[in-house]
Nucleic acid binder design. Structure first.
Length: 291
DNA sequence: GGTAGACCTGGACGC
DNA sequence: GCGTCCAGGTCTACC
């Protein structure tokens, strides 16, 4: 089945795909030739589908799957891909601010500003936990282990697996997660998150549509064991809320080099450097790194 | 509120 | 090949 999705302009699929390292994490697969991606997705019906996302004529997005979908499944797929690519995001206020900063002045012209998301916030939360206190290679290894060990398999493509649902991960033991996915001390965090989502104690997906103040959403995220300041800010960015900067060791290096002559700095200095961007400071920081 | 130490793994490095 | 050190955020205990 083929679909063409339209995006609020400006939009550039290549820029979204390369907005951060998410496309390198299973079950994403980067198609470097087109700068699109392939992805395995488990729908609510339980069907695991293959997905090809490529640029379409006129700046739209072409989406293709070999699966046969009923109307409800097709609607779910379109909704999820719309979320993953932020097709309906309006970044006009940010672009207006960015025009005054030479380093980010061409954001609108280049269609930059959206950040690639996974199909569910649960998947992004688990992936964020896998970025904590480890190298990028470690993150890729852990996520690969989770998909391989616990993801549902495509019916017609043995070995091709979707990211595991909360229910699938909740059924695992902490010891298994340590052994199979090499999660280390993150295992109880991932298991606790999966169990809370699986039994309905935590509705992460509802945060996508929440109109609650960012501080309240941040508070909910910080209540999750394993989610600290950095991880919460990262998830807020994915939710389209840019009031906080995900301050990690890289952020400290960038701001130290550019604003403080390489001298040791702390979180406060990073916040201060991007304070003029107000509610958009997280996004300004993010693309400062990709400028 | 601030700080120190533990958590876990892989990579870099020295021998 | 082996052992040691280090990087990377968060939690917990303690002050």
């Amino acid at each position: 089945m083929n679909f063409v999705l339209s995006a609020r302009r400006p939009f550039n699929l290549s820029v979204v795909v390369n907005s951060h390292g998410w496309v390198q994490l299973a079950p994403f697969s980067h198609d470097k030739e087109s700068d699109g991606f392939d992805y395995l997705m488990e729908l609510s019906s339980g069907q695991v589908i293959d997905l090809r996302v490529r640029p379409a004529d006129g700046g739209d997005v072409q989406m293709e799957t070999t699966a046969a979908l009923n109307p409800a499944e097709a609607e779910e797929l379109i909704g999820r891909v719309t979320w993953m690519l932020g097709l309906d995001q309006d970044l006009t206020p940010f672009y207006d601010l960015a025009r005054a900063e030479p380093k980010l002045a061409s954001m609108a012209e280049q269609g930059r500003g959206r950040i690639l998301r996974s199909a569910t916030l649960f998947e992004d939360a688990v992936k964020t936990l896998c970025t904590v206190n480890t190298s990028w290679a470690g993150t890729k290894r852990m996520v690969r282990g989770l998909v391989k060990g616990y993801g549902a398999e495509h019916a017609h493509a043995p070995g091709q697996r979707a990211f595991p649902t909360a229910a699938r991960l909740a059924a695992a033991s902490e010891q298994d997660l340590r052994a199979n996915a090499k999660l280390g001390f993150r295992a109880p965090f991932v298991l606790g998150l999966a169990q809370a989502v699986a039994v309905g104690d935590l509705d992460l997906e509802a945060l996508k549509e929440s109109t609650a103040p960012t501080l309240e959403v941040r508070k909910q995220l910080l209540a999750i064991k394993g989610i600290g300041d950095y991880a919460a800010a990262n998830l807020l960015m994915i939710l389209g809320r840019y009031d906080f900067i995900p301050v990690d060791s890289w952020a400290l290096k960038v701001v130290s080099k550019e604003w403080h002559d390489g001298q040791p700095i702390g979180r406060a200095e990073v916040e201060a450097a991007f304070a003029p961007w107000g509610a958009w400071k997280g996004l300004a920081y993010w693309f400062w790194n990709y400028a």
